[in-house]
């Protein structure tokens, strides 16, 4: 598959995530859109890893070129899992204090 297809798909997914963050007010959906953006980047990293590997097979004798990209995706998933657990607990605490998940109620840090 040409790498342009993967790049375009990832950019479109990423921009859908950005539009979601900008237009929705529900904190949980904003959070899900952030996950969507992370996944778009992950897909692009894997595609680039395979592209790098294809370029390396022809030229030199390093059959594992491009493994770093996939390990990077693995670490992104690790960080995303940690981020989700903390973020959801923040949303739960916010709901407990304001009885809403509307982000517009958070425009003041006081009260």
């Amino acid at each position: 598959m040409p790498i342009q297809y993967y790049i375009t798909l990832s950019i479109v997914l990423f921009c859908i995530g950005i539009v979601g963050v900008l237009t929705r007010r529900n904190a949980i959906i904003i959070f899900m859109c952030i996950e969507l953006m992370l996944n778009a980047v992950n897909l692009l990293l894997v595609a680039f890893s395979k592209m790098h590997n294809a370029g390396a097979v022809g030229s030199d004798a390093n059959p594992t070129a491009g493994v770093d990209g996939q390990l990077f995706v693995f670490f992104i998933m690790v960080v995303a899992a940690a981020e989700v657990s903390v973020g959801l607990s923040i949303i739960v605490m916010m709901y407990r204090n304001t009885h809403s998940v509307d982000v517009n109620f958070l425009n003041r840090l006081k009260n």
């Binding site: 598959m1 790498i3 595609a47 294809a54 370029g55």
Partner: peptide, 17 residues
């Protein structure tokens, strides 16, 4: 003219990773 190879290559396998 760059392509990502599909269905082939072993860098995604759990052994190599």
């Amino acid at each position: 003219n760059k392509t990502a190879i599909v269905k082939e290559g072993n860098i995604g396998l759990i052994k190599v990773l």
